[in-house]
Simulated assay, not measured.
Amino acid sequence: MTVKPHRPLALLLCTAMALALGACGKEPDSPTASNEATLTGPDAKPGLVASDGKLVLPVIAGRPAAVYFTVRNDGAEPVTLAAVSILGAGKAEMHETKGGSMGKVDSLPVDPGASVVFAPGGLHVMVFDLPAALKAGGKAELTMTFSDGDKLSMPLAVEAMGGDMGDMGDMEGMHH
């Protein structure tokens, strides 16, 4: 059974949190007690929460974008993240960078009490065939699908590539 949050209220709250987080100029690297208040988002079922979502546009149009976020399982049972999608995009895939190369991740377990952080240089989502209307300063929507069929959606702040993105631009496999 999928529990669906009241979408307008959830999106309003998530947007407010994203603006508040962006205003402070520092994003958490991983979920800790010091950033506990920033870890909010619509729930798929009790205890499953997503936060800190952003979509980073490619420097060159037509190349894939990257998505970063945190998903936390405060529930009593393990869950498995089985797929991701971005509203309006042609395709989205979970990837992981290890030892200088990037590979596709088909599924990702999230144990009770654990968080998984999608961040530059590690786990991330590659997004292909972006909608032309998607621009820096705008919003996008990420939907995560779990192996039991539950879904969790969250808003993403859309940003232009800049700052420290690691070596992702030079990595083999980035040009799909």
Results as ranks from 00 to 15, higher is better:
Val56Lys: 02
Thr2Met: 15
His124Cys: 10
Lys4Asn: 03
Ala10Tyr: 03
Leu9Cys: 00
Ser153Tyr: 13
Thr80Gln: 08
Pro155Glu: 02
Pro8Tyr: 06
Glu141Val: 09
Pro46His: 13
Pro28Arg: 09
Leu57Cys: 08
Asp43Val: 08
Leu123Phe: 15
Met154Pro: 00
Asp43Gly: 06
Ala44Tyr: 01
Thr70Arg: 12
Leu87Asn: 13
Ala89Asp: 09
Asp150Glu: 10
Met1Lys: 02
Pro8Val: 06
Ala50Ile: 07
Val105Leu: 08
Glu36Thr: 02
Leu48Glu: 03
Leu19Gln: 10
Glu36Asp: 12
Gly163Arg: 01
Ala61Ser: 13
Ala119Val: 14
Leu13Asp: 10
Lys135Met: 07
Pro78Ile: 06
Asp74Gln: 14
Met168Leu: 15
Ser51Asn: 06
Gly121Gln: 03
Asn35Arg: 02
Gly138Pro: 10
Lys54Trp: 04
Val79Asn: 05
Gly90Gln: 10
Ala140Asp: 04
Leu156Lys: 03
Gly90Cys: 01
Met126His: 14
Glu141Trp: 05
Thr70Gly: 07
Val49Gln: 00
Glu77Cys: 01
Leu123Lys: 10
Phe128Lys: 11
Val59Phe: 00
Pro112Ala: 02
Gly88Arg: 11
Lys45Pro: 00
Pro109Gln: 09
Asp106Ser: 12
Met161Leu: 04
Leu108Thr: 04
Gly166Thr: 04
Met126Tyr: 09
Val117Gln: 05
Leu152Trp: 03
Leu11Pro: 00
Val117Ser: 09
His176Cys: 00
Leu156Phe: 07
Phe146Ile: 05
Val67Pro: 04
Thr97Asn: 05
Leu152Gln: 13
Leu55Glu: 01
Ala76Trp: 03
Ala61Gly: 11
Phe146Cys: 05
Leu39Cys: 06
Ser30His: 06
Cys24Ala: 07
Lys98Ser: 08
Gly41Trp: 11
Leu11Asp: 09
Val79Pro: 01
Met94Cys: 06
His175Arg: 11
Pro31Arg: 14
Ser51Ala: 15
